[in-house]
Nucleic acid binder design. Structure first.
Ligand SMILES: NC(=O)c1ccc[n+]([C@@H]2O[C@H](COP(=O)([O-])OP(=O)(O)OC[C@H]3O[C@@H](n4cnc5c(N)ncnc54)[C@H](O)[C@@H]3O)[C@@H](O)[C@H]2O)c1
Ligand SMILES: NC(=O)c1ccc[n+]([C@@H]2O[C@H](COP(=O)([O-])OP(=O)(O)OC[C@H]3O[C@@H](n4cnc5c(N)ncnc54)[C@H](O)[C@@H]3O)[C@@H](O)[C@H]2O)c1
Lengths: 228, 228
DNA sequence: CTATCATTGTGAATGATTTCACAAGGTGTC
DNA sequence: GACACCTTGTGAAATCATTCACAATGATAG
Protein backbone atom coordinates (compact mmCIF):
# COMPACT_ATOMS: atom_id res chain seq x y z
CA UNK A 1 0.00 0.00 0.00
CA UNK A 2 1.56 3.24 -1.08
CA UNK A 3 1.30 6.50 0.73
CA UNK A 4 -0.04 8.04 -2.44
CA UNK A 5 -3.13 6.00 -1.87
CA UNK A 6 -3.73 7.55 1.51
CA UNK A 7 -4.43 11.21 0.83
CA UNK A 8 -4.49 13.18 4.02
CA UNK A 9 -2.80 10.51 6.08
CA UNK A 10 0.20 12.68 6.71
CA UNK A 11 -0.64 16.31 6.19
CA UNK A 12 -3.68 18.44 6.47
CA UNK A 13 -4.61 20.19 3.30
CA UNK A 14 -2.04 20.06 0.50
CA UNK A 15 -2.31 17.92 -2.62
CA UNK A 16 -0.78 14.91 -1.01
CA UNK A 17 -0.03 12.99 -4.18
CA UNK A 18 2.23 15.77 -5.44
CA UNK A 19 3.76 16.25 -2.04
CA UNK A 20 4.99 12.74 -1.86
CA UNK A 21 6.18 12.49 -5.41
CA UNK A 22 8.04 15.79 -5.21
CA UNK A 23 11.42 14.63 -4.12
CA UNK A 24 12.62 15.93 -0.84
CA UNK A 25 16.27 16.83 -0.59
CA UNK A 26 18.52 14.90 1.71
CA UNK A 27 19.40 18.08 3.56
CA UNK A 28 15.75 18.83 4.21
CA UNK A 29 15.33 15.35 5.71
CA UNK A 30 18.39 15.86 7.90
CA UNK A 31 16.94 19.10 9.18
CA UNK A 32 13.59 17.49 9.91
CA UNK A 33 15.35 14.89 11.99
CA UNK A 34 17.09 17.66 13.86
CA UNK A 35 13.87 19.61 14.38
CA UNK A 36 12.34 16.45 15.79
CA UNK A 37 15.10 16.13 18.35
CA UNK A 38 14.79 19.78 19.34
CA UNK A 39 11.03 19.50 19.65
CA UNK A 40 11.41 16.48 21.89
CA UNK A 41 13.73 18.45 24.12
CA UNK A 42 11.32 21.37 24.22
CA UNK A 43 8.42 19.01 24.87
CA UNK A 44 10.16 17.28 27.75
CA UNK A 45 10.73 20.71 29.28
CA UNK A 46 7.03 21.35 29.09
CA UNK A 47 7.14 23.93 26.32
CA UNK A 48 3.80 24.06 24.50
CA UNK A 49 4.37 26.20 21.46
CA UNK A 50 7.38 27.21 19.42
CA UNK A 51 7.84 29.69 16.59
CA UNK A 52 9.76 28.97 13.42
CA UNK A 53 12.28 31.51 14.64
CA UNK A 54 12.94 29.79 17.93
CA UNK A 55 13.20 26.40 16.29
CA UNK A 56 15.56 27.86 13.70
CA UNK A 57 17.78 29.37 16.38
CA UNK A 58 18.11 26.06 18.12
CA UNK A 59 18.72 24.23 14.87
CA UNK A 60 21.24 26.75 13.61
CA UNK A 61 19.23 27.74 10.55
CA UNK A 62 16.75 30.44 9.55
CA UNK A 63 13.06 30.79 10.28
CA UNK A 64 12.30 30.82 6.56
CA UNK A 65 14.14 27.55 6.13
CA UNK A 66 12.15 25.92 8.91
CA UNK A 67 8.86 27.05 7.44
CA UNK A 68 9.86 26.00 3.95
CA UNK A 69 10.93 22.56 5.15
CA UNK A 70 7.65 22.01 6.96
CA UNK A 71 5.61 23.37 4.09
CA UNK A 72 6.90 20.54 1.93
CA UNK A 73 4.58 18.30 3.90
CA UNK A 74 1.68 20.45 5.00
CA UNK A 75 0.79 23.39 7.18
CA UNK A 76 1.18 22.58 10.78
CA UNK A 77 1.37 26.02 12.40
CA UNK A 78 -1.00 28.68 13.64
CA UNK A 79 -0.40 32.17 12.32
CA UNK A 80 0.39 34.59 15.07
CA UNK A 81 1.12 31.76 17.48
CA UNK A 82 3.65 29.34 16.07
CA UNK A 83 3.56 25.56 16.24
CA UNK A 84 2.13 23.34 18.97
CA UNK A 85 5.22 21.45 20.10
CA UNK A 86 3.64 18.08 20.72
CA UNK A 87 1.60 18.23 17.56
CA UNK A 88 4.50 19.19 15.30
CA UNK A 89 6.57 16.52 16.98
CA UNK A 90 4.02 13.96 16.03
CA UNK A 91 3.73 15.24 12.46
CA UNK A 92 7.48 14.96 11.93
CA UNK A 93 7.55 11.49 13.43
CA UNK A 94 4.89 10.54 10.94
CA UNK A 95 6.73 12.15 8.03
CA UNK A 96 9.99 10.40 8.84
CA UNK A 97 8.32 7.06 9.43
CA UNK A 98 9.14 6.87 13.12
CA UNK A 99 5.73 5.83 14.40
CA UNK A 100 6.77 2.25 14.14
CA UNK A 101 9.89 0.29 14.90
CA UNK A 102 12.45 -0.79 12.34
CA UNK A 103 14.21 -4.13 12.16
CA UNK A 104 17.94 -3.63 11.93
CA UNK A 105 20.86 -6.04 11.52
CA UNK A 106 24.46 -5.31 12.41
CA UNK A 107 27.14 -6.93 10.28
CA UNK A 108 30.59 -6.89 11.87
CA UNK A 109 30.96 -7.43 15.61
CA UNK A 110 34.12 -5.38 16.00
CA UNK A 111 34.95 -2.18 17.79
CA UNK A 112 32.45 0.06 16.07
CA UNK A 113 29.82 -2.65 16.18
CA UNK A 114 30.22 -3.03 19.94
CA UNK A 115 29.60 0.68 20.45
CA UNK A 116 26.54 0.61 18.22
CA UNK A 117 24.93 -2.42 19.82
CA UNK A 118 24.56 -0.63 23.13
CA UNK A 119 23.70 2.76 21.68
CA UNK A 120 20.53 3.69 23.50
CA UNK A 121 19.48 6.40 21.07
CA UNK A 122 18.95 3.79 18.39
CA UNK A 123 16.56 1.77 20.47
CA UNK A 124 14.67 4.73 21.90
CA UNK A 125 14.08 5.95 18.36
CA UNK A 126 12.64 2.62 17.32
CA UNK A 127 15.67 1.09 15.62
CA UNK A 128 15.89 -2.44 16.97
CA UNK A 129 19.00 -4.48 16.29
CA UNK A 130 17.59 -7.95 15.81
CA UNK A 131 20.61 -9.79 14.47
CA UNK A 132 24.40 -9.50 14.62
CA UNK A 133 26.76 -11.28 12.24
CA UNK A 134 30.49 -11.91 12.13
CA UNK A 135 32.89 -14.29 10.42
CA UNK A 136 35.31 -14.67 13.30
CA UNK A 137 34.86 -18.12 14.90
CA UNK A 138 36.02 -16.67 18.23
CA UNK A 139 33.11 -14.25 18.18
CA UNK A 140 30.33 -16.38 16.73
CA UNK A 141 28.14 -17.77 19.50
CA UNK A 142 29.15 -15.08 22.01
CA UNK A 143 26.36 -13.10 23.56
CA UNK A 144 26.23 -9.39 22.87
CA UNK A 145 23.57 -7.71 24.96
CA UNK A 146 20.35 -9.37 23.95
CA UNK A 147 21.87 -10.85 20.80
CA UNK A 148 23.98 -13.90 20.08
CA UNK A 149 26.53 -13.28 17.36
CA UNK A 150 25.62 -15.36 14.34
CA UNK A 151 27.85 -16.81 11.71
CA UNK A 152 28.09 -14.80 8.58
CA UNK A 153 26.99 -17.83 6.53
CA UNK A 154 23.57 -17.69 8.19
CA UNK A 155 23.10 -14.12 7.12
CA UNK A 156 20.93 -14.67 4.08
CA UNK A 157 18.37 -16.87 5.75
CA UNK A 158 18.23 -14.89 9.00
CA UNK A 159 17.84 -11.53 7.27
CA UNK A 160 15.01 -12.85 5.16
CA UNK A 161 13.46 -14.82 8.03
CA UNK A 162 13.42 -11.84 10.37
CA UNK A 163 12.46 -9.49 7.56
CA UNK A 164 15.28 -7.14 8.39
CA UNK A 165 14.83 -3.73 6.78
CA UNK A 166 18.02 -1.86 7.57
CA UNK A 167 21.58 -3.21 7.67
CA UNK A 168 24.44 -1.51 9.46
CA UNK A 169 27.78 -2.40 7.87
CA UNK A 170 30.71 -2.40 10.27
CA UNK A 171 33.15 -4.77 8.59
CA UNK A 172 36.58 -3.99 7.14
CA UNK A 173 36.54 -1.97 3.95
CA UNK A 174 37.53 -4.83 1.67
CA UNK A 175 34.72 -7.05 2.93
CA UNK A 176 32.03 -4.39 2.73
CA UNK A 177 30.93 -4.66 -0.90
CA UNK A 178 30.54 -8.42 -0.65
CA UNK A 179 28.45 -8.09 2.48
CA UNK A 180 26.28 -5.43 0.90
CA UNK A 181 25.60 -7.56 -2.16
CA UNK A 182 24.39 -10.41 -0.01
CA UNK A 183 22.41 -8.19 2.30
CA UNK A 184 20.63 -6.60 -0.63
CA UNK A 185 19.93 -10.01 -2.13
CA UNK A 186 18.19 -10.90 1.13
CA UNK A 187 15.70 -8.08 0.74
CA UNK A 188 17.29 -5.32 2.80
CA UNK A 189 16.83 -1.99 1.11
CA UNK A 190 18.48 0.49 3.44
CA UNK A 191 22.10 0.48 4.50
CA UNK A 192 24.15 2.50 6.94
CA UNK A 193 27.80 2.03 6.06
CA UNK A 194 30.78 2.70 8.32
CA UNK A 195 33.45 1.22 6.08
CA UNK A 196 35.55 3.72 4.17
CA UNK A 197 34.49 2.61 0.71
CA UNK A 198 32.05 3.83 -1.86
CA UNK A 199 29.56 1.00 -2.04
CA UNK A 200 27.51 0.15 -5.09
CA UNK A 201 23.88 -0.60 -4.49
CA UNK A 202 21.07 -1.21 -6.97
CA UNK A 203 18.52 1.51 -7.60
CA UNK A 204 15.85 1.41 -4.93
CA UNK A 205 18.29 0.70 -2.13
CA UNK A 206 19.06 3.64 0.15
CA UNK A 207 22.59 4.11 1.34
CA UNK A 208 24.07 6.46 3.90
CA UNK A 209 27.74 6.61 4.71
CA UNK A 210 29.32 7.59 7.98
CA UNK A 211 32.87 8.36 7.01
CA UNK A 212 34.95 9.70 9.84
CA UNK A 213 38.11 10.12 7.83
CA UNK A 214 36.29 12.35 5.37
CA UNK A 215 35.06 14.46 8.28
CA UNK A 216 38.52 14.75 9.78
CA UNK A 217 39.98 15.70 6.43
CA UNK A 218 37.31 18.35 6.09
CA UNK A 219 38.50 19.80 9.38
CA UNK A 220 42.11 19.66 8.23
CA UNK A 221 41.14 21.55 5.10
CA UNK A 222 39.33 24.19 7.12
CA UNK A 223 42.32 24.64 9.41
CA UNK A 224 44.69 24.76 6.48
CA UNK A 225 42.76 27.24 4.40
CA UNK A 226 42.08 29.52 7.34
CA UNK A 227 45.74 29.26 8.31
CA UNK A 228 45.40 30.78 11.72
CA UNK B 1 51.80 33.23 7.51
CA UNK B 2 48.75 32.98 5.34
CA UNK B 3 48.41 30.93 2.22
CA UNK B 4 47.41 34.04 0.36
CA UNK B 5 50.95 35.23 0.82
CA UNK B 6 52.32 32.19 -0.94
CA UNK B 7 51.12 32.47 -4.49
CA UNK B 8 51.88 29.35 -6.43
CA UNK B 9 52.55 27.23 -3.38
CA UNK B 10 49.60 25.01 -4.04
CA UNK B 11 48.56 25.20 -7.65
CA UNK B 12 50.22 25.84 -10.94
CA UNK B 13 48.86 28.78 -12.80
CA UNK B 14 45.62 30.22 -11.46
CA UNK B 15 45.27 33.47 -9.56
CA UNK B 16 45.97 31.87 -6.23
CA UNK B 17 44.73 34.69 -4.04
CA UNK B 18 41.26 34.47 -5.53
CA UNK B 19 41.32 30.71 -5.48
CA UNK B 20 41.84 30.56 -1.78
CA UNK B 21 39.44 33.34 -0.91
CA UNK B 22 36.69 31.85 -3.06
CA UNK B 23 34.98 29.68 -0.56
CA UNK B 24 34.91 26.03 -1.36
CA UNK B 25 31.70 24.18 -0.62
CA UNK B 26 31.68 21.49 2.01
CA UNK B 27 30.50 18.96 -0.54
CA UNK B 28 33.43 19.76 -2.81
CA UNK B 29 35.82 19.12 0.08
CA UNK B 30 34.09 15.84 0.86
CA UNK B 31 34.54 14.78 -2.74
CA UNK B 32 38.20 15.73 -2.74
CA UNK B 33 38.73 13.55 0.29
CA UNK B 34 37.04 10.72 -1.54
CA UNK B 35 39.09 11.27 -4.70
CA UNK B 36 42.18 11.11 -2.55
CA UNK B 37 41.20 7.74 -1.16
CA UNK B 38 40.43 6.40 -4.63
CA UNK B 39 43.70 7.70 -5.99
CA UNK B 40 45.59 6.01 -3.18
CA UNK B 41 43.88 2.75 -4.05
CA UNK B 42 44.73 3.18 -7.73
CA UNK B 43 48.29 4.13 -6.84
CA UNK B 44 48.83 1.11 -4.65
CA UNK B 45 47.66 -1.03 -7.55
CA UNK B 46 50.32 0.55 -9.69
CA UNK B 47 48.00 2.59 -11.89
CA UNK B 48 49.86 5.57 -13.34
CA UNK B 49 47.23 7.74 -14.94
CA UNK B 50 43.51 8.20 -14.50
CA UNK B 51 40.91 10.15 -16.44
CA UNK B 52 38.27 12.34 -14.86
CA UNK B 53 35.77 9.82 -16.13
CA UNK B 54 37.35 6.86 -14.42
CA UNK B 55 37.76 8.76 -11.18
CA UNK B 56 34.15 9.90 -11.41
CA UNK B 57 32.92 6.34 -11.93
CA UNK B 58 34.71 5.15 -8.85
CA UNK B 59 33.53 8.12 -6.82
CA UNK B 60 29.96 7.85 -7.97
CA UNK B 61 29.86 11.26 -9.60
CA UNK B 62 30.35 12.74 -13.08
CA UNK B 63 33.51 13.53 -14.98
CA UNK B 64 32.51 17.18 -15.21
CA UNK B 65 32.12 17.31 -11.45
CA UNK B 66 35.59 15.91 -10.93
CA UNK B 67 37.15 18.39 -13.31
CA UNK B 68 35.24 21.29 -11.80
CA UNK B 69 36.26 20.30 -8.28
CA UNK B 70 39.90 20.11 -9.24
CA UNK B 71 39.78 23.30 -11.25
CA UNK B 72 38.90 25.16 -8.06
CA UNK B 73 42.53 24.70 -7.10
CA UNK B 74 44.48 24.56 -10.32
CA UNK B 75 45.00 22.51 -13.44
CA UNK B 76 46.60 19.23 -12.67
CA UNK B 77 45.78 17.15 -15.73
CA UNK B 78 47.17 16.62 -19.19
CA UNK B 79 44.73 17.02 -22.04
CA UNK B 80 44.34 13.84 -23.98
CA UNK B 81 45.91 11.80 -21.20
CA UNK B 82 44.21 12.41 -17.89
CA UNK B 83 45.86 12.87 -14.53
CA UNK B 84 49.07 11.35 -13.24
CA UNK B 85 47.82 9.36 -10.26
CA UNK B 86 50.71 9.98 -7.88
CA UNK B 87 50.92 13.64 -8.80
CA UNK B 88 47.22 14.33 -8.34
CA UNK B 89 47.33 12.39 -5.11
CA UNK B 90 50.01 14.69 -3.86
CA UNK B 91 48.17 17.81 -5.01
CA UNK B 92 45.03 16.81 -3.15
CA UNK B 93 47.01 15.98 -0.04
CA UNK B 94 48.45 19.45 -0.22
CA UNK B 95 45.06 21.06 -0.80
CA UNK B 96 43.48 19.28 2.15
CA UNK B 97 46.42 19.96 4.42
CA UNK B 98 47.46 16.34 4.81
CA UNK B 99 51.17 16.73 4.23
CA UNK B 100 51.67 17.09 7.92
CA UNK B 101 50.27 15.47 11.00
CA UNK B 102 47.52 16.89 13.15
CA UNK B 103 47.39 16.89 16.92
CA UNK B 104 44.07 15.51 18.09
CA UNK B 105 42.50 15.07 21.53
CA UNK B 106 39.70 12.71 22.39
CA UNK B 107 37.26 13.79 25.08
CA UNK B 108 35.17 10.97 26.49
CA UNK B 109 36.70 7.53 26.99
CA UNK B 110 33.50 5.58 26.52
CA UNK B 111 32.30 3.12 23.92
CA UNK B 112 32.68 5.32 20.88
CA UNK B 113 35.94 6.70 22.18
CA UNK B 114 37.40 3.23 22.57
CA UNK B 115 36.62 2.43 18.94
CA UNK B 116 38.16 5.68 17.76
CA UNK B 117 41.37 5.39 19.73
CA UNK B 118 42.36 2.27 17.85
CA UNK B 119 41.06 3.38 14.48
CA UNK B 120 44.04 2.89 12.20
CA UNK B 121 42.74 5.05 9.39
CA UNK B 122 43.06 8.09 11.60
CA UNK B 123 46.72 7.51 12.33
CA UNK B 124 47.65 6.52 8.79
CA UNK B 125 46.11 9.75 7.57
CA UNK B 126 48.16 11.79 9.99
CA UNK B 127 45.60 12.35 12.73
CA UNK B 128 47.43 11.60 15.97
CA UNK B 129 45.46 11.29 19.16
CA UNK B 130 47.79 12.83 21.70
CA UNK B 131 45.49 13.12 24.71
CA UNK B 132 42.39 11.41 26.07
CA UNK B 133 40.18 12.87 28.78
CA UNK B 134 37.39 11.57 30.95
CA UNK B 135 35.67 12.53 34.20
CA UNK B 136 35.11 9.01 35.47
CA UNK B 137 37.56 8.28 38.35
CA UNK B 138 37.48 4.59 37.43
CA UNK B 139 38.83 5.43 33.98
CA UNK B 140 41.30 8.19 34.75
CA UNK B 141 44.82 6.81 34.95
CA UNK B 142 44.02 3.72 32.88
CA UNK B 143 46.14 3.14 29.85
CA UNK B 144 44.44 3.21 26.47
CA UNK B 145 46.83 2.13 23.76
CA UNK B 146 49.64 4.63 23.88
CA UNK B 147 47.65 7.07 25.98
CA UNK B 148 46.87 7.37 29.65
CA UNK B 149 43.39 8.68 30.30
CA UNK B 150 43.66 12.10 31.90
CA UNK B 151 41.31 13.79 34.25
CA UNK B 152 38.95 16.21 32.65
CA UNK B 153 40.16 18.97 34.97
CA UNK B 154 43.58 18.85 33.33
CA UNK B 155 42.06 19.42 29.95
CA UNK B 156 42.70 23.13 29.60
CA UNK B 157 46.36 23.00 30.40
CA UNK B 158 47.09 19.83 28.47
CA UNK B 159 45.31 21.00 25.33
CA UNK B 160 47.21 24.27 25.37
CA UNK B 161 50.49 22.62 26.37
CA UNK B 162 50.34 20.05 23.59
CA UNK B 163 48.96 22.61 21.18
CA UNK B 164 46.09 20.34 20.22
CA UNK B 165 44.40 21.42 17.02
CA UNK B 166 41.40 19.12 16.69
CA UNK B 167 39.12 17.81 19.43
CA UNK B 168 36.90 14.78 19.07
CA UNK B 169 33.89 15.01 21.36
CA UNK B 170 32.56 11.65 22.55
CA UNK B 171 30.83 12.55 25.79
CA UNK B 172 27.12 12.34 26.64
CA UNK B 173 24.96 14.92 24.91
CA UNK B 174 24.33 17.02 27.98
CA UNK B 175 28.04 17.37 28.73
CA UNK B 176 29.05 18.22 25.18
CA UNK B 177 28.46 21.97 25.07
CA UNK B 178 30.41 22.50 28.29
CA UNK B 179 33.32 20.48 26.96
CA UNK B 180 33.29 22.36 23.70
CA UNK B 181 33.37 25.73 25.43
CA UNK B 182 36.43 24.73 27.40
CA UNK B 183 38.14 23.11 24.45
CA UNK B 184 37.66 26.21 22.35
CA UNK B 185 38.93 28.39 25.18
CA UNK B 186 42.12 26.31 25.12
CA UNK B 187 42.81 27.20 21.52
CA UNK B 188 41.31 24.27 19.65
CA UNK B 189 39.61 25.45 16.51
CA UNK B 190 38.29 22.29 14.90
CA UNK B 191 35.83 19.86 16.43
CA UNK B 192 34.42 16.52 15.43
CA UNK B 193 31.29 15.89 17.45
CA UNK B 194 29.62 12.55 18.05
CA UNK B 195 27.09 13.73 20.61
CA UNK B 196 23.56 14.21 19.34
CA UNK B 197 23.37 17.94 20.01
CA UNK B 198 23.72 21.03 17.94
CA UNK B 199 26.80 22.65 19.43
CA UNK B 200 27.47 26.36 19.42
CA UNK B 201 30.95 27.42 18.49
CA UNK B 202 32.38 30.89 17.92
CA UNK B 203 33.07 32.05 14.37
CA UNK B 204 36.41 30.74 13.22
CA UNK B 205 35.94 27.35 14.83
CA UNK B 206 35.12 24.51 12.44
CA UNK B 207 32.62 21.93 13.50
CA UNK B 208 31.57 18.65 11.93
CA UNK B 209 28.91 16.43 13.34
CA UNK B 210 28.65 12.68 13.01
CA UNK B 211 25.06 12.01 13.89
CA UNK B 212 24.08 8.41 13.48
CA UNK B 213 20.49 8.88 14.55
CA UNK B 214 20.01 11.48 11.83
CA UNK B 215 21.38 9.01 9.30
CA UNK B 216 19.12 6.22 10.49
CA UNK B 217 16.12 8.51 10.39
CA UNK B 218 17.05 9.46 6.85
CA UNK B 219 16.92 5.79 5.95
CA UNK B 220 13.56 5.39 7.70
CA UNK B 221 12.24 8.31 5.67
CA UNK B 222 13.50 6.79 2.44
CA UNK B 223 11.89 3.45 3.26
CA UNK B 224 8.66 5.13 4.28
CA UNK B 225 8.32 7.37 1.27
CA UNK B 226 9.20 4.60 -1.16
CA UNK B 227 6.80 2.29 0.66
CA UNK B 228 7.94 -0.89 -0.96
C1' DC C 1 55.05 17.20 -40.09
C1' DT C 2 50.26 16.45 -40.28
C1' DA C 3 46.17 14.21 -39.03
C1' DT C 4 43.71 11.90 -35.63
C1' DC C 5 42.34 11.00 -31.19
C1' DA C 6 41.45 11.55 -26.30
C1' DT C 7 40.67 14.31 -22.59
C1' DT C 8 41.14 18.56 -20.07
C1' DG C 9 39.56 23.19 -18.37
C1' DT C 10 35.96 26.28 -18.32
C1' DG C 11 32.23 29.62 -19.66
C1' DA C 12 27.35 29.30 -20.13
C1' DA C 13 23.05 26.88 -19.16
C1' DT C 14 20.44 24.49 -16.16
C1' DG C 15 18.81 22.89 -11.87
C1' DA C 16 18.38 22.96 -6.82
C1' DT C 17 18.27 25.21 -2.53
C1' DT C 18 17.98 29.08 0.29
C1' DT C 19 16.49 33.59 1.36
C1' DC C 20 13.38 37.45 0.87
C1' DA C 21 9.35 39.78 1.53
C1' DC C 22 4.68 40.20 2.23
C1' DA C 23 -0.35 39.02 2.11
C1' DA C 24 -3.20 36.17 4.85
C1' DG C 25 -4.86 34.75 9.03
C1' DG C 26 -4.93 34.25 13.80
C1' DT C 27 -4.68 36.30 18.85
C1' DG C 28 -5.42 39.63 22.34
C1' DT C 29 -6.92 44.26 23.97
C1' DC C 30 -10.00 47.87 24.81
C1' DG D 1 -15.89 44.82 16.70
C1' DA D 2 -12.03 47.41 15.41
C1' DC D 3 -7.20 47.88 15.95
C1' DA D 4 -2.55 46.41 16.92
C1' DC D 5 0.36 42.82 16.81
C1' DC D 6 2.52 38.26 15.62
C1' DT D 7 3.80 34.64 12.91
C1' DT D 8 2.72 31.55 9.25
C1' DG D 9 2.83 29.91 4.37
C1' DT D 10 4.50 30.79 -0.02
C1' DG D 11 5.51 32.90 -4.61
C1' DA D 12 9.44 35.35 -6.45
C1' DA D 13 14.24 36.49 -6.30
C1' DA D 14 18.77 35.41 -5.22
C1' DT D 15 22.32 32.37 -4.51
C1' DC D 16 24.71 28.17 -4.94
C1' DA D 17 25.89 23.68 -7.23
C1' DT D 18 25.91 20.70 -11.08
C1' DT D 19 25.87 19.58 -15.82
C1' DC D 20 26.59 20.66 -20.61
C1' DA D 21 29.24 21.42 -24.45
C1' DC D 22 33.14 22.64 -26.85
C1' DA D 23 37.55 25.01 -27.96
C1' DA D 24 42.17 24.15 -26.60
C1' DT D 25 45.83 21.16 -26.11
C1' DG D 26 48.86 17.46 -25.83
C1' DA D 27 49.87 12.59 -27.28
C1' DT D 28 50.50 9.33 -30.91
C1' DA D 29 50.76 7.14 -35.40
C1' DG D 30 52.11 7.23 -39.94
N1 LIG E 1 37.06 1.70 14.88
C1 LIG E 1 36.59 2.88 14.51
O1 LIG E 1 36.61 3.82 15.28
C2 LIG E 1 36.05 3.11 13.14
C3 LIG E 1 35.70 4.39 12.81
C4 LIG E 1 35.15 4.63 11.55
C5 LIG E 1 35.02 3.61 10.66
N2 LIG E 1 35.38 2.38 10.97
C6 LIG E 1 35.22 1.34 9.98
O2 LIG E 1 34.27 0.42 10.46
C7 LIG E 1 34.62 -0.89 10.02
C8 LIG E 1 34.80 -1.77 11.23
O3 LIG E 1 35.80 -1.20 12.05
P1 LIG E 1 36.19 -1.82 13.45
O4 LIG E 1 37.17 -0.90 14.05
O5 LIG E 1 34.97 -2.17 14.20
O6 LIG E 1 36.96 -3.12 12.97
P2 LIG E 1 37.13 -4.50 13.72
O7 LIG E 1 38.25 -5.19 13.04
O8 LIG E 1 37.16 -4.29 15.18
O9 LIG E 1 35.77 -5.25 13.38
C9 LIG E 1 35.45 -5.76 12.14
C10 LIG E 1 34.68 -7.06 12.35
O10 LIG E 1 34.14 -7.49 11.12
C11 LIG E 1 34.27 -8.91 11.08
N3 LIG E 1 34.18 -9.32 9.68
C12 LIG E 1 35.14 -9.35 8.74
N4 LIG E 1 34.66 -9.75 7.56
C13 LIG E 1 33.36 -10.02 7.77
C14 LIG E 1 32.32 -10.49 6.94
N5 LIG E 1 32.52 -10.72 5.63
N6 LIG E 1 31.09 -10.66 7.47
C15 LIG E 1 30.88 -10.38 8.78
N7 LIG E 1 31.82 -9.93 9.60
C16 LIG E 1 33.05 -9.76 9.10
C17 LIG E 1 35.59 -9.20 11.75
O11 LIG E 1 35.62 -10.53 12.21
C18 LIG E 1 35.54 -8.18 12.89
O12 LIG E 1 34.94 -8.72 14.03
C19 LIG E 1 35.89 -0.74 9.21
O13 LIG E 1 35.55 -0.64 7.85
C20 LIG E 1 36.47 0.55 9.70
O14 LIG E 1 37.24 1.20 8.70
C21 LIG E 1 35.90 2.09 12.23
N1 LIG F 1 27.78 4.26 21.42
C1 LIG F 1 27.51 4.60 20.18
O1 LIG F 1 27.47 3.76 19.31
C2 LIG F 1 27.26 6.01 19.81
C3 LIG F 1 26.90 6.26 18.49
C4 LIG F 1 26.69 7.58 18.08
C5 LIG F 1 26.82 8.59 19.00
N2 LIG F 1 27.15 8.34 20.25
C6 LIG F 1 27.29 9.48 21.15
O2 LIG F 1 28.63 9.58 21.56
C7 LIG F 1 28.69 10.03 22.89
C8 LIG F 1 29.42 9.02 23.72
O3 LIG F 1 28.75 7.79 23.60
P1 LIG F 1 29.28 6.46 24.28
O4 LIG F 1 28.38 5.39 23.85
O5 LIG F 1 30.74 6.33 24.05
O6 LIG F 1 28.98 6.79 25.81
P2 LIG F 1 29.72 6.28 27.11
O7 LIG F 1 28.83 6.54 28.23
O8 LIG F 1 30.26 4.92 26.86
O9 LIG F 1 30.98 7.24 27.21
C9 LIG F 1 30.90 8.58 27.55
C10 LIG F 1 32.13 8.90 28.36
O10 LIG F 1 32.22 10.31 28.57
C11 LIG F 1 32.67 10.50 29.91
N3 LIG F 1 32.30 11.85 30.30
C12 LIG F 1 31.12 12.30 30.77
N4 LIG F 1 31.19 13.63 30.98
C13 LIG F 1 32.43 14.03 30.63
C14 LIG F 1 33.09 15.27 30.64
N5 LIG F 1 32.47 16.38 31.00
N6 LIG F 1 34.38 15.30 30.24
C15 LIG F 1 35.01 14.18 29.86
N7 LIG F 1 34.42 12.97 29.82
C16 LIG F 1 33.15 12.90 30.21
C17 LIG F 1 32.02 9.41 30.70
O11 LIG F 1 32.74 9.19 31.92
C18 LIG F 1 32.13 8.24 29.74
O12 LIG F 1 33.34 7.53 29.92
C19 LIG F 1 27.24 10.23 23.34
O13 LIG F 1 26.90 11.59 23.14
C20 LIG F 1 26.47 9.35 22.40
O14 LIG F 1 25.16 9.84 22.19
C21 LIG F 1 27.39 7.06 20.68
Amino acid sequence: MSLQSLPGAVAKKEPVAEMRSAKISESAVRRLSLYLRLLQEADSLGQETISSEELADRAGTTAAQVRKDLSLFGSFGKRGLGYAVSELLQEIREILGLNRSWRVALVGAGKIGSALITYRNFRTRGFHIEAVFDTDPDKVGKRWGTQTILDDTEMGSVLAGKRIEIAVIAVPADAAQGVVDRVVASGVSAILNFAPVRLRVPKGVSLRNVDMVVEMEGLAFALTSTER
